[in-house]
């Protein structure tokens, strides 16, 4: 059935009732608000003239309008501005409006791409993101698989722990990890020193950036696993048991069942989670920024902090924008796969 058929009949009330009162309807989040229902008859009264104008494509576009407006204003316009900035010379004087911005063509990109420091930052970002995403997904999947196999009380226990760590604000989590890995009073050093043959008393984890990134990765993964595990667990509970059992009858082992039955069914979720993880882990900022006291050393710079550093510390907003733009392009390449997958889903109905 096509939408156009039902549209003219009810379009006006739908639009006025929900559209106009939008900002007040926070309560809608939880329960159907009676107000919408009451408003609709009144909204419908004005008659058919208005209704006809909103036929066809008008209604869906009206419904979309607020979302598109917000996205265009706060993302579309800045995205354009980002591109423009990256082709200009734009420093403090331009920012403060004392001097006009000057066009410099591809100079900023040439400078960025020709800088060895930039490429080492790219490499570090890629390594870090890969490591964090793989760890997150593997651990998340293991925890999810575990969750369907444990007793109820254990499941509750694990869920509480997961939810508690998931909902920890990132800034809080960074602070806690910084404290746990403090060189003098950190509990991590103390605990690890209990292992025979290990003495980490007074050990500073951040002197060596590889070790430092271990801590940062642990923090990021710890924060990301709950979302992945809980979502995958919910997905697992929807895998039809008959399918798994049938596979088992056919002689498949646990690994086989997982690979040939469970995983294919979960694939959309896994793809979504992996992509989201890539986006999030590549966008890691406060974890590094705050962990290094607001000024990451050169060997701790990731693309995000590096762009921030160029823009706001070195006051070269144009170069910062150029780096940000390169980051966007990199990311778009990585997640093209996800896009395709999602589009296929979008076309299903």
């Amino acid at each position: 059935m096509s939408a156009a058929q039902t549209t003219p009949e009810q379009s006006t009330p739908g639009q006025t009732a929900t559209g106009r009162t939008a900002p007040e309807h926070t309560a809608a989040a939880a329960a159907p608000p009676p107000r919408t229902a009451k408003a609709s008859p009144a909204g419908r009264a004005p008659g058919s003239g208005l209704r006809r104008r909103l036929t066809g494509a008008a209604l869906p576009w009206t419904l979309l309008a607020p979302t598109l407006l917000v996205l265009l204003l706060v993302l579309g316009y800045p995205l354009t501005r980002l591109v423009v900035l990256s082709f200009q010379r734009f420093g403090q004087s331009q920012l403060w409006g004392f001097q006009p911005a000057e066009w410099v063509g591809f100079d900023n990109f040439a400078a960025v791409l020709g800088d060895g420091v930039f490429w080492s930052v790219v490499l570090r970002t890629v390594l870090f993101t890969t490591g964090a995403v793989v760890l997150t997904m593997v651990l998340g999947m293991l925890v999810a698989l575990l969750l369907v196999r444990v007793s109820t009380w254990v499941k509750t226990l694990v869920n509480i722990a997961l939810v508690a760590s998931w909902s920890m604000p990132i800034v809080v989590a960074v602070t806690v990890f910084k404290w746990m890995f403090d060189s003098d009073y950190g509990v991590a050093n103390w605990l690890l020193s209990r292992i025979p043959g290990v003495d980490l008393t007074g050990h500073n984890w951040f002197t060596n950036s590889t070790q430092g990134f271990l801590v940062i990765t642990a923090l990021v993964v710890w924060g990301a696993v709950p979302f992945v595990a809980i979502t995958l667990h919910a997905g697992l509970t929807q895998v039809p048991r008959e399918l798994e059992e049938a596979a088992r009858m056919d002689g498949a082992g646990a690994a086989g069942v997982f690979r040939h039955v469970t995983l294919p069914i979960l694939k959309p979720v896994v793809v979504m989670l992996t992509t989201l993880s890539v986006i999030w882990d590549m966008g890691v900022f406060p974890q590094v920024f705050l962990m290094r006291g607001g000024h990451p050393e050169p060997e701790y710079q990731l693309l995000t902090t590096y762009s921030y550093d160029r823009a706001f510390v070195a006051n070269d907003y144009a170069t910062g924008s150029a780096i940000a733009l390169v980051t966007v392009l990199l990311l778009l390449g990585v997640v093209a796969v996800y896009m395709r997958q999602m589009l296929t889903i979008g076309e299903v109905e």
């Binding site: 900002p23 309560a27 989040a29 939880a30 329960a31």
Partner: peptide, 18 residues
């Protein structure tokens, strides 16, 4: 739970307007 959520929603709305 539903009631609680509703309550949070209403509170949020009030605060938002304020």
């Amino acid at each position: 739970k539903r009631q609680l959520i509703a309550a949070v929603g209403v509170a949020a709305m009030v605060v938002g307007v304020a």
